[in-house]
Design a protein around this nucleic acid. Structure first.
Lengths: 208, 208, 208, 208
DNA sequence: AATGAATGAGAGTTCATTCAT
DNA sequence: GATGAATGAACTCTCATTCAT
């Protein structure tokens, strides 16, 4: 047991370290341009070692994607809200969501994964489910509860969730994807979120 | 003059032919994986010829992006509407916009350009302005006219345009980017557009 | 003593097991293509262990060759004959010899060793002496006895032995070496051996 | 025409030059150990150039084999004989055959091709047909003519051809394959050929 | 203007071998 | 004695680019 555990930990820790470096290089260079030599050099190890941990470059990339999806899924938990007041809840949620998905880190990952989604649809699908879909589901669940409490009047909460996120995110997301603007400040985020909340509440007010 | 013009045209036509082939190869393989050899071979010419028309691979890519931006800009003109009835206009516009931007062709270009936007921000910026921004401007202009005619009550027409597009596009666009779904049918597009129009009209109805 | 013997045996048994696996891999892949990793993996052990038993790949190969030479030498004993009737003896011997040396197993070993004989003449020489030379010596000894008994008229029994084997083996051996034909059936072997015996007996009949 | 012919010649000449070098390296190192870098370096060119002429290492090897087979086939023409006297003819033919097939050059090629015959049976088969089989056919044709003229009494000339070659070649060929002896001198060749002729003529004399 | 042979740097990958545990 | 992680050199092959013709 003990003699199993120690190396196990070592090996896992090394694997994580490799993934950290690999992720950085992938994000900086893109999949095709990232070279195993670069990754090994930055790691301070030899190329052969990489291949002791990952079958090949593709496998290393897949491992990175998997790990990023887990991170993404957990990040989406931050959207959970038990806030009673709908306006407050939506505002907070919009801010949180945008600050996550419009961050440099998220954008770099998004661009990278989108670019590879073509060659490897499985990669894109995994990411879509762990990220965008998961986020909308979190919000959808909240909207459903608000609906049940009569605070909103919504037929299809999941669609409404997508719509709210669309209202918040559309402009900046596309600009960010195209690298046409930098990471938004809190003020810039508010300039998107507050009008989005306004429009959303008007559209889905119970007393329409 | 004449003896100048003829070769000129020939040269331009050849250049366009090269760009056609280059675009296809870039879309299929991505920038890094597309090889000058492949492009030359598909063109039926020699690699040397490519370098007579374009300084290097980067330059060839930039020329493709430029041309695609022109196409995109023109495609956004299809959004222009002088329809009197707002609901009809928005529905039509939403359908047109989504059928353009969610097509396989647009998505391939989008993914490709987004991927390179990191290395070359100018490329991304040019695309953003010719495409998403331009589309919202077209819609914004329409909304402004409708506002002026009292058909809607909108403070900031450009923001409202982004919001409408966000309502329409958000879910499918992200799924498409991640290659998690295929090109949507007309029915699938309607399932996004019609509720979006509904929500938008409720939110921005003049009599709120 | 006892406590010395047990590990000794264990160690020898393990060594043999390694050689068994190594031989298989060498035969399947050739010396250069056979990898120590493959051998270790098939053995169910680690690469380090291999190096505890054999100094390096070359040494492992040499050990395999040595063992195969012993096997070969023993196989040649099967050629020994005390048959009185010369025709019967030669026929039997020819059949036995060909069925051994033209078998898939022998051919695989022969090709492998011949290929390495260039790099390492000692390997080839050891094999030649244990196999072909030994076989001819066995036959030569028989021919000498038959000669002494007046059943044949032979000046140089060893040369005659080589000649008989040449008569039997030449066509199929070369075809087999080149992998141009598969392992011969008993009938195919007879189609070589019987005419060979005929020609040999005619050439070396006592009453010529 | 002219402008086609000149480069054509250049390209073919270069191709031949590459094959010359590649053959040397293959013969010295064996297929697996021969490296494209070594070949390029010896050629005085770059690795990339090799790949402009041959798709890959395997293809280069196949081209070498093909060329060697052509050479071998032509070499076998040297066996043709219109000599009237059978003894003289067989002696000459045996000497010629052995001096060809037991030369260092032939042996190196034989070992190399035999080694690869396992991985690539087509290679071995092509060689077998161009070399050993062809040689026996040349001799078989002569024996048939001698038979028709009543100088020999042979049922199956092709088999007899294989038998004669077996009588001549067997001992030295195996020793040479195993690299147990060096290139034989004319005297050593005669020590095999003359007894072989003797035995063969006795066995197939018309007056038996 | 068009060609295509040549280049050389660098890619991903494998492997025999070593060594600390 | 057994392990397996680490190494670094070597491998095959690709590619953007140049240049003489």
């Amino acid at each position: 047991m003990i003699q199993d555990l120690k190396p196990r930990l070592d090996r896992d820790a090394r694997r994580e370290a490799i993934l950290d470096v690999a992720r950085d290089v992938f994000l900086e260079e893109g999949y095709a341009n990232a070279s195993m030599s670069t990754i090994a050099a930055r790691l301070g190890g030899s190329k052969g070692t990489l291949y002791n941990y990952f079958k090949n470059k593709e496998d290393l990339f897949a491992a990175y994607v998997t790990r990023h999806c887990m991170w993404q899924r957990e990040a989406m938990f931050a959207l959970f809200s038990e806030e009673k007041d709908v306006r407050t809840a939506l505002t907070k949620l919009g801010r949180t969501y945008l600050s996550i998905v419009l961050s440099d880190f998220s954008l770099l990952n998004f661009r990278l994964i989108v670019a590879e989604a073509q060659r490897t649809p499985a990669v894109g699908k995994a990411f879509y489910e762990a990220g965008p879909e998961r986020g909308s589901q979190m919000l959808g669940a909240y909207l459903e509860r608000a609906n049940a409490r009569g605070l909103l009047k919504i037929d299809d909460p999941l669609r409404a969730a997508h719509q709210f996120i669309g209202l918040c995110q559309n402009r900046l997301m596309k600009a960010r994807l195209c690298n046409a603007v930098g990471e938004p400040t809190a003020e810039e985020i508010d300039r998107e979120v507050l009008p989005a909340v306004e429009a959303f509440l008007t559209a889905f007010a119970p007393g329409r």
